[in-house]
Write a protein that binds this DNA or RNA. Structure first.
Lengths: 200, 200, 200, 200
DNA sequence: TATGAATGAGGGTTCATTCAT
DNA sequence: CATGAATGAACCCTCATTCAT
């Protein structure tokens, strides 16, 4: 990578990070491009050298940040020495939920537009900075489980949507229950979902 | 209700309905107050006699339309002659999913900001026009089920969030599967959720 | 006309006049909407209540000002007691050329985009303020001439385009000759054009 | 001409040609310098090594392209074996009108700012690429006519402005008549103009 | 109550021009 | 000579909100 390219990448990350801070603190709608460039210390025109508009930034950030989060969870899992497939997924779920509970800005930012479509693209394609790929990690976990599964993708979809949407409500509003109260219910339901997808 | 009050209510409903049409057809962000009042045939100032701003309208509509949808499903259920509790919930789930699939504008409008908090307020308090109450209906179904449940509210929460978020993805993007392919998975999972909440 | 309507018309004329001053002094391209509203003493948004954009203003002004100019010439003609058709047209030509020579801002403003199409619309439809119609005047002159003409519209077209474009160059650049030197040539040519359209 | 100079000239022509394509296809106002350099495949800064701004390019192009057009007409005339002066001018007029009718982009580009001043400079001074000179050609035609003329320059001026401005309207808008309908009128008028300038 | 003309801050976007490499 | 990233002033336009009628 040439010096110029590196410089370019630094400028882009600078913009991304500052945009992320603003998005998570005051929300996307209330963040203007003027805000972003001012915080990043560059001229307005510079923004348009790197991004099409605000939503271009948003999409890249969602992909990027989600990817980081899941890979972080996966790295933690590797150190946790869990062997059972169910336990491993539960571990990841807990890890992600705890992280999001500790960073509500990130949660509300990711959640608003994290469709499965975006999510999958995220997991599949290595993002700007990470050279990783959660899809491969998931596949590895499936292989190491000792089972065969029907529709493993749908299984993951059900789990992520369930955990994501209930987790959002619990963390943001403690409604209808707090995250701690929610977790046992979730754990049981996730185990059910896994079992009902095991091929007999 | 006096004549003046009736007139006021009519004006308000006129604005609500026209706003709803615009919200579901072109989206909330791209709908301006100017659009709403023009379509409704009233002056701009009049809008502010009835609503604080666009989001005031939005919140009332979400509550109202969600309520209608669930009560419609419940009315249909009454004609369906189903007795088993599981079957009855599945029926409602199917009914709602099919309605939303047939009206994607409504789906994306409701979904974007339908937190459990809003939803619960909806179900509990009779809205502007309906004099009904889905919470009472749900309670009745629980009573008639012949079972006792642990945390019935959490149970409903899990089901609604799961069905809502996976349904959204399937209907809007057919990703990762179409609604028809999703339904069997959902049905099985919902039954699991119900069973794990039955008090032994 | 109601009081409100009158007020509205005054506001519009205020904007038109100020825009005209700017257009003729600094040119259309260098005149911004910000300039216009500042000079007119109204808010930016007000501009858009009356006009689509800068070019909307321009078109209305061209029509309006051209119309005024020709009708002024026609009014002067009526006082001049000329009877011969050729002399009358020459009179109008001279009048218009002298006016434009005395007001180069108006000339360059009108000339740039005064296509025959715009001109004809102008002459035909009474404009914002004038209730007059040069086309009718021209027709009257034809009737009173005692001749019959082949293609009188084309005849007028030839004269106007010839006089307009040569006049522009003479007045603005004195190139290749001054207006005074040009006039005899023009007069002779215009008389030729008229004669060649007289029906035998 | 040195190798370096040749290279410089090639770069310049590359920019001119690409600018011309853009000017005639999308118009001058909507063509940005970014567009030009992108199409030409050079860097933005390079543009400023050769031209002051967009209007510098425009002026050079108008002169260049007009010159080409007239010399092309003159070359065609030489092959046409016409002897009468009137016929020869009419031939050139028709040739130019037909060319412009076939290339409306060129017409609207040339016309907008083709003042007589620019035109004369064009005819007189050999341009960037052509080593020709329409003024000399016109003088030769006058000499070969067998007549003497009063103010031959004004005569040409009248003809060019008349033909140019009426031709523009006919070609671009077919208003008030099509080019084919216009031509006989023009021919007759042009012959009149010539005759009235013949010295007795 | 109802109106709708007027406001003006604020948004997004473009683009000619510069200058360090 | 050539580059092209960076600049930032300038632009157009939208729109929620107010208030005199």
């Amino acid at each position: 990578m040439g010096k110029a390219d590196q410089n370019k990448k630094r400028k882009m990350e600078n913009l991304l990070n500052n945009a992320f801070d603003l998005f998570t603190s005051k929300g996307i709608n209330k963040t203007s491009i003027a805000d972003i460039v001012e915080k990043a210390g560059v001229a307005k025109g510079t923004f348009y050298l790197y991004f099409k508009d605000k939503y271009d930034v948003k999409n890249r950030l969602i992909a990027h940040k989600s990817s980081l989060l899941f890979m972080e969870a996966y790295e933690a899992l590797k150190k946790a020495n869990l062997t059972a497939f169910e336990d491993r997924l539960i571990f990841i779920m807990d890890y992600v939920l705890d992280k999001l509970a500790a960073n509500k800005g990130l949660l509300s930012f990711i959640y608003k537009d994290l469709s499965w479509a975006v999510f999958k693209r995220t997991l599949t394609s290595p993002s700007i900075t990470t050279e990783v790929d959660f899809e491969a990690a998931y596949k590895k976990m499936l292989d190491e489980s000792g089972y065969e599964f029907n529709d493993p993708e749908v299984m993951l979809f059900l789990i992520i949507e369930l955990v994501g949407s209930t987790g959002y409500s619990s963390i943001m509003y403690e409604d209808p229950v707090s995250l701690d109260e929610l977790k046992p219910h979730l754990e049981e339901t996730v185990r059910s979902i896994i079992r009902q997808h095991i091929k007999q």
